[in-house]
Design a protein around this nucleic acid. Structure first.
Lengths: 335, 335
DNA sequence: GGCATAGATTAAAACGTGTTACACGATGTC
DNA sequence: GACATCGTGTAACACGTTTTAATCTATGCC
């Protein structure tokens, strides 16, 4: 086993354990020569600080929890990458939990985080229920919502305006000459989907078109490429091709693209197509995909910064609900 | 703060703290009625065990470290998903570290893991240097290599036979009529790239072709879609289109596909193309991509199982070097 | 020279849990 | 009735670190 602790170091450096602790945590308080002597002992013995003991005594850990909805989706892994980077820079470790959209698993994750006495939690919540979060906060654990606005002033959140995104995509399609929109989305119970659809409606009305006639919404159970392809095949079979398709997700859009291509339908020649998220693979497909870009990586970075600020200055921290504006990326699939 | 600890629970349940600890860790040793009384108290107080104190006293944590080479690559996130699932099932938490291929960051990760006294470490190593790992193991931390064979009998590893994979891809192209192979790869200092290329050579010689003339290798600095597209553009400009292209990576292949498509080169009509990894997006591209499938998710699952077995039965655990065989997935891009 | 002051170090008391050895009744055995 | 046994529960220490208050030394000042 490891065996070598702070007091073995102290013995070798001819110092008291307290001094070693000071070298570790407040080096400025110890005289340069002793400091160096202690550091040498640390190196020689290969000492590494026992994090648990430290956490126990200090009352707080250098750890944050990250609960993701879908680790298989590039959108979320981008968020994770951003979060990990910032956390790592500031000396924090990240405990990963993948909820897969399941409330049970999400609760399990939060419980694990609580046991580990993480300093804070970053979560892409699967629903709007804030009760579980309050449980954490009673334990003194800060929480920041990611990709989901906090509808209350005492909680930080970092998200992107999905209504605006839906509007952007729709307006773009209308500008390219479309008079009606075929909208392929995931379950409308998912906030992101509902908001994006709302944006479509707003854009249509703003252009003097009635959503009731100019908008057709198709709801798929999953937001995967497979689901997208199925939607496209169904569309082709029906024989009534729309002028323009807006998918709530790039995964869906890539599937649609492939389904249309296989049926010999030209994109953007016969149908214009736009997705959402602007994942890296959007530009890699044979007909590059127009999409709505979100500052994914930044989402993770800023959420972590907010979280650690809240942990560091619990008194004067001002809760903020940050909402980014999405951005249109026009590529080949919309002409 | 939380404030409620094991002894507050004990007070409410009219029991000694030791008994509460027993209810938590060896429930069978305590009489059913007291057990229930304690459990009720735990529920009422909303008590959650202090993981650090537990770790400190017990001498071991319920945590593993996971150091990934590239969290942005679907291959690695699949591995992570598998690992997280198993770890979670068995009550372990996962600390995530993203090395991005940098040795410095990798060392940082390992140091963090050591401080947290993780039970074991899962790592997709960026090189073959085993010294850092030995440092961990001296501290009683088990290590399992992922996607990298252990060249020593005292270390577990889970990997895929990349030589066989390269051979599979090449043989497939040869069977479709190609007489020479254009191989686009990443840095050959990366073991995976070197092995896959080795497989190409073996397959060529086995077919009576001399690698010196039948194989052209192009080494790109990164294994991204962008790099693939650049390689394709260069190829088109050179005017000498090969019969068949084998990319060491699906990301590269998707880029090549797009580059060729933009230049009006038909796939698989004029050029056959195959990738490697069979990421989900391989099937989603306009011309679905042939690829070499690896049991990614399983890699993560089994590695974690091995790791936790090694932690649980330190005495009788037999180190294993598991090597999976990859599998050809033929799709449209090779006709 | 005495005293205050600042700086450097230390001793000892926590932090919340797990574990060991032991106490306590009750039961069964001779 | 004495004694071993068994099933439960307890008391107290230990884990490795941080932190507080106290101690010690050297320095400057009157």
């Amino acid at each position: 086993m490891s065996g070598v602790g702070i007091k073995e170091v102290a013995r070798i450096a001819r110092v008291s354990p307290g001094t070693v602790s000071n070298v570790l945590n407040r080096p400025e308080r110890v005289a340069p020569e002793t400091r160096e002597r202690v550091r040498r002992a640390i190196r020689e013995l290969g000492f590494v600080r026992h994090g648990s003991a430290s956490t126990l005594r200090a009352g707080h850990s250098r750890t944050i929890g990250l609960s993701l909805m879908d680790i298989g989706n590039p959108f979320f892994t981008d968020v994770a990458a951003g979060a990990e980077e910032v956390a790592s820079e500031l000396g924090y470790a990240v405990i990963l939990g993948n909820s897969g959209g399941s409330r049970t698993k999400e609760e399990h994750n939060l419980r694990v985080f609580a046991e580990h006495r993480v300093r804070g939690v970053l979560i892409t919540p699967s629903d709007d229920d804030p009760r579980r979060l309050d449980g954490l906060r009673e334990h003194g654990i800060s929480v920041v919502l990611v990709d989901h606005p906090a509808y209350r002033p005492d909680l930080c959140s970092v998200s992107v305006d999905d209504v605006a995104g839906g509007r952007l995509a729709t307006r773009h399609l209308l500008e390219r000459g479309a008079r009606n929109i075929h909208h392929i989305t995931g379950p409308l119970t998912i906030r992101q989907c509902a908001d994006r659809r709302r944006g479509v409606e707003l854009a249509l009305t703003a252009a003097g078109l009635a959503p009731a006639t100019a908008l057709e919404t198709v709801q798929m159970p999953a937001m995967t490429a497979r689901a997208g392809q199925e939607a496209a095949e169904r569309l082709v079979r029906s024989g009534r091709l729309p002028e323009a398709i807006f998918c709530a997700n790039d995964m869906l859009a890539l599937g649609v693209l492939r389904g249309l291509h296989q049926a010999g339908v030209g994109v953007p020649g016969e149908v214009a197509l736009i997705g959402y998220d602007d994942i890296d693979f959007a530009v890699a497909s044979a007909v590059s995909l127009s999409s709505i870009r979100q500052p994914t990586y930044e989402l993770g970075r800023i959420a972590t910064e907010l979280l650690l600020d809240e942990c560091g200055n619990p008194g004067e921290h001002a809760h903020r609900q940050i909402m980014f504006q999405p951005e249109l990326v026009a590529r080949e699939s919309t002409g």
